[in-house]
Nucleic acid binder design. Sequence first.
DNA 1: AATAAACTGTTAATGAAATAACAATACAAA
DNA 2: TTTGTATTGTTATTTCATTAACAGTTTATT
Lengths: 209, 209
Amino acid sequence: MKNLPDKTVERLSQYRRALLVCLADNKMHIFSHELAGLIHITPVQVRRDIILIGYSGTLRKGYDVRELVSLIGKIIDTEEGLRACIVGVGNLGRAIIRYFKDKRTKLVITAAFDTNPEKVKCVFSGVRCYPIEQLESVIREQDISIAILTVPGEVAASVAETLEKAGIRGIINYTPTPLNVSEKIYLGEYDMITSLEKAAYFVKNNRGE
Amino acid sequence: MKNLPDKTVERLSQYRRALLVCLADNKMHIFSHELAGLIHITPVQVRRDIILIGYSGTLRKGYDVRELVSLIGKIIDTEEGLRACIVGVGNLGRAIIRYFKDKRTKLVITAAFDTNPEKVKCVFSGVRCYPIEQLESVIREQDISIAILTVPGEVAASVAETLEKAGIRGIINYTPTPLNVSEKIYLGEYDMITSLEKAAYFVKNNRGE
DNA sequence: AATAAACTGTTAATGAAATAACAATACAAA
DNA sequence: TTTGTATTGTTATTTCATTAACAGTTTATT
Ligand SMILES: NC(=O)c1ccc[n+]([C@@H]2O[C@H](COP(=O)([O-])OP(=O)(O)OC[C@H]3O[C@@H](n4cnc5c(N)ncnc54)[C@H](O)[C@@H]3O)[C@@H](O)[C@H]2O)c1
Ligand SMILES: NC(=O)c1ccc[n+]([C@@H]2O[C@H](COP(=O)([O-])OP(=O)(O)OC[C@H]3O[C@@H](n4cnc5c(N)ncnc54)[C@H](O)[C@@H]3O)[C@@H](O)[C@H]2O)c1
């Protein structure tokens, strides 16, 4: 499959989240306008995305939810699954560990790291916390591809360097410190202040979404 | 000032974050390529954004950091400041409260809400937690414009409804439940699973950022 | 049958965002 | 001076994303 647009990839993830809720409700088919409504976009966009991934629905019946979920899985997930780790088990790190627990089978948080001796060896929502010194060895042993960075901002850069040496392939940075890593590594930076300031700007200017 | 593009608004927030670090380092001028490097974009884009907000630098000297910070403030912030609240003081809620503490003067978290009697009346990083029953009155009294939603997914929709009744103008939803609120209300939905799955997709396909 | 309604799928048009190309100018060095 | 260099600011172009328009199908209804 050719490279999908960035935005489509994001929406596929959202579609799947919504579709899994449908499945849980025993809803087996869904129309483009229903799916669109669930995530606040237009039906046309849903259909375009779906065409883009090479699926098609049946007229007057909509899309088969299970098939669509499975196809999105084929695109986003890997056969063998990917493993992720949390670096920095503070409030945010723990929140994320707990949130991910049992959410996905092909994308699992398998390890956490911290410097605090009290946290090391603890198990948080089923995830073992290792001392930061073992970061490299654990990442290699467990074949962890993605790291979620929730350490204090001051140490983010040095931790990122260690992650790079350990052969990590993607970093999600929740730290306020922007990182500089090799081009080869996928880097996602998320700062809640930006989210909130964006909201503030739109509220100030009386613009809805 | 005319309505700025969405993306520009986001970048302005990022610029300011970076610029504040510069100021703290006593760096008084900055070139477009320096600022660009700090947030991984191109110098041209920085210059375009800056032109868009009606500022101009001086040749061979770059942009005046303080002036730029102040101008971005004029755009994003309001004179009197905006207030925000946290609804749901769990791990995530506490992490956010702590993170925002003392970060901005014009955008402040002034209240938190929870149903848990043990949390009510507690003060988290300087922010008082009120019982959810007082949500409406506190929002009106303190003139809170933005709510950050970090309650369990199951109650998100009903809390959002209460927020709407209380006259909230923006909601930032970290809950996995997509919300349906009036068009008038700014709504930002952020799901970490989407961020992680996006990372997984790009890692799988060996594409960097 | 014929007609209407409800969808999907596709192509065309528009709009937004990013990039490229380059003109203009200040400063430094020769 | 003159020339070269670094940097901003502007316009043009390209790319990407969204929306609009509509053609085509299936089903239900008369
Ligand atoms: N992006 C956002 O929106 C957002 C929101 C909240 C917090 N944050 C940031 O996320 C980070 C974590 O926030 P928090 O509230 O959980 O902080 P926290 O202080 O509770 O947690 C940080 C954890 O990192 C550990 N740590 C310190 N140095 C370490 C190192 N070198 N290696 C490994 N672990 C180390 C600490 O022991 C602690 O457990 C901070 O940088 C904070 O600014 C970001
Ligand atoms: N978007 C993300 O990336 C992300 C990441 C982690 C967690 N989450 C979500 O954020 C939410 C909070 O996560 P958490 O780990 O902090 O959970 P948590 O269970 O620790 O916190 C939830 C808090 O909400 C309170 N609460 C429950 N019902 C309430 C109500 N009706 N009104 C007000 N408060 C109420 C609880 O008492 C608790 O304090 C969950 O929905 C979780 O799925 C999202």
